[in-house]
């Protein structure tokens, strides 16, 4: 009983600090392609927007707020956003995590680190050269791949084709 008491006390302390600093991210999950694959082919009723990006990719950073906005604007329409970072693994602590905290990224972020690029780039989409930014939008009925940058309106227009 005493033990439980201590834990609950600690929890409260933690909660307070979180409130003050807003949620600080301290780690990002790393996937290889086989681990990422299930997230690219879910067959529930949601629409998934998968954006391939990196902190060093200027056009990716520019369009990131549009993905964040889509996530917010369409949250009640069953739209989910996943940001797949292609940052170099050694840059995760130095660049990726500070970037996520600075910009208060709300979408889920994972790191894709897999040497077999020649295999998984094709597997994700036959037409993808490997250039980023690139975006995959899919539902159980439809699937589209975009090797391009997005403005918000263009992104929304694409998402709407999945909703209608």
């Amino acid at each position: 009983m005493l033990f439980v008491g201590i834990i609950s006390c600690k929890k409260e302390v933690v909660k307070e600090t979180i409130k003050e600093e807003t949620t600080q991210i301290s780690s990002v999950k790393t996937y290889n392609y086989n681990e990422l694959k299930p997230l690219l082919e879910k067959s529930d009723d949601k629409i998934y927007i998968i954006n391939f990006w990196a902190t060093w990719c200027a056009p990716c950073v520019k369009e990131l707020p549009y993905f964040e906005k889509i996530k917010q604007d369409y949250a009640n329409k069953n739209v989910e956003v996943l940001l797949v970072s292609l940052d170099f693994p050694k840059q995760v602590n130095k660049k990726l995590i500070p970037f996520m905290n600075k910009h208060k990224i709300q979408s889920k972020v994972v790191l894709l680190d897999d040497i077999n690029e020649d295999v998984w780039i094709k597997a994700i989409n036959e037409s993808w050269s490997g250039a980023i930014p690139a975006t995959l939008i899919y539902s159980k009925k439809n699937r589209k791949f975009y090797e391009q940058s997005f403005e918000y309106e263009a992104l929304e227009k694409e998402v709407l084709t999945f909703l209608n």
């Binding site: 690029e117 020649d118 980023i132």
Partner: peptide, 10 residues
């Protein structure tokens, strides 16, 4: 023909 990640041409 092979593929790798790269930066889009600006």
């Amino acid at each position: 023909e092979t593929r790798a990640i790269g930066c889009s041409i600006k």
